[in-house]
Design a protein around this nucleic acid. Structure first.
Lengths: 207, 207
DNA sequence: GTCTATATTGCGATAGAC
DNA sequence: GTCTATCGCAATATAGAC
C-alpha cells in the first residue's frame, strides 16, 4: 500500500513487524519498549517518535491485524451463489487459511478477550460482531429454506460455529501436542469440526 | 480444609482470594504486588513473606484453581452408569455450573493459553489432557457401540466438544452483548451447543 | 506476624546533539 | 530521522523495628 519501492522497509514497518509477534505471544503488559526496539533493530527512542508510545503502538498493531479480519470478512461475504452449508464450509477453509497466513492475528484477538485493553471496545467488538452477523445470517437463511433445524437460535448457533472452528487454534499450545499426529492437523481438525457442526444443524432427513 | 474456625480468614487466604480475580482479569504481568496487597487489605511486604514473591503467588493461585478443575473431572468420571450421549450432556451441565461457582477459573486457564507462564507446562497441560482423555474415551466408547459416526477421530472430536461448550465463556465480553437476551443465557447456549454437537456426532438413523 | 523504610532495578518517555 | 543520556517514576523485594 504505502511502499514506494521494494528495496527497504521503513522504520515504522520494522517496528510494526517486530511488535506483532511480541505483543501476540507475551501480551501487552509483558512486553517492554526496549524489547520492541531491539527486535525491530531500531533505536529505542524511535517508538515514541513514530507511534507516540507503547500504548499507541499496540493500538496500531491491532489495527493492522483487524485489517486482515476485515479482508477475510469481505472474502466470505462474496458467497451469495453458495447455499448456506457451502458458505459455512467455505468459512472454515478461510479461517484455516488465515491462521497459516497471519499466525498472530488470532492470538492478538484472543488476548483482547482475556485481558481487554482500551482497543477492545473500539476495534475488536465492532469487527467481530459483524462476523457473527454474517454467520447468523447464513444460518437464518438455511432455517428459512428448511435446511437447518428450526429450533436453532441463529445468533447462538453462529457463536457455536466460531467456537468449534477456532478452539483448536486457541488451544494450539496443548492441542498440537495431545492430538494424534496427522499430515495436516489443522485442516483435518477444521474439516471434522465443520462436518460435525453441519450434521448437527441440518434437519435429519436431508442427509 | 485448613480453616480452624470460621470467624476470621488467614492472611494467606486473604491474599489468595484477592489475587484470583486480579490475575484472572488483568493477566499476570499487568498486576502489581502493591495492587494485590491493597485488594487483600494486607501490608505489601506480606506477599513476599507468605508466598516468596509475585511469581510464586501466581503459581499458588493457579494451583487453587486447578484443584477446582480436578474436582470437576472427578465428578464427571463418576458417570459409568450413563450412556455416552448422557455423559456428554452431563459434561455440559458441569461446565456451566463451574462457571457460575468459580467464575475466574476459566479466565486464568485461558490466560495461560494465550500468554503462558512457567505454570503452563507444569500444571495446565497435565490437567487438561486428562480432561480431553476422558471425553475422547466417551466418544470412542460411543463409536464402538455404534452410536456415534465411525469416521470420527475421538481425540479431535473431544477437542471440538470442549470448543463448542467453552467458547461462549471465552468470548463472554462480546457474547453477552451481541446475543439476544434469554432468561438464562449461558445455560441456553450450552444446551443448544451440546445438542447440536450430539446431533452432529450421532449416526443419522438413531434419531 | 506485621509494619516502615529503603535498596535496587527496570520501566516509558523525552531533551537535545548530530 | 536517528542517536545518547537522562529524568522521573513505579516496580519487586528485603532488612530490621516492633
Amino acid at each position: 500500500m504505502k511502499k514506494e519501492n521494494v528495496t527497504e522497509k521503513s522504520t515504522m514497518d520494522k517496528i510494526l513487524d517486530a511488535a506483532i509477534p511480541l505483543f501476540a505471544m507475551k501480551g501487552y503488559a509483558a512486553v517492554s519498549v526496549k524489547e520492541l526496539a531491539e527486535a525491530a533493530g531500531v533505536n529505542i527512542a524511535l517508538i515514541s517518535y513514530y507511534f507516540g508510545g507503547k500504548e499507541n503502538l499496540y493500538a496500531a498493531v491491532l489495527k493492522t491485524q483487524f485489517a486482515v479480519i476485515a479482508e477475510m470478512i469481505d472474502v466470505i461475504r462474496k458467497t451469495d451463489h453458495l447455499n448456506p452449508a457451502e458458505k459455512i464450509r467455505f468459512f472454515g477453509q478461510i479461517v484455516a487459511q488465515s491462521h497459516v497466513k497471519c499466525p498472530y492475528t488470532s492470538h492478538l484477538i484472543y488476548g483482547e478477550f482475556i485481558n481487554p485493553t482500551a482497543s477492545f471496545d473500539t476495534i475488536v467488538k465492532k469487527e467481530l460482531s459483524q462476523l457473527n452477523n454474517f454467520l447468523s445470517g447464513c444460518i437464518r437463511e438455511a432455517i428459512e429454506l428448511g435446511q437447518f433445524r428450526e429450533d436453532l437460535d441463529p445468533e447462538y448457533a453462529a457463536l457455536s460455529l466460531s467456537g468449534i472452528v477456532n478452539f483448536y487454534f486457541f488451544t494450539q499450545n496443548l492441542s498440537k501436542e495431545i492430538l494424534p499426529p496427522r499430515e495436516n492437523q489443522a485442516e483435518y481438525y477444521i474439516n471434522q469440526a465443520v462436518e460435525t457442526y453441519l450434521h448437527g444443524v441440518l434437519v435429519p432427513n436431508i442427509l
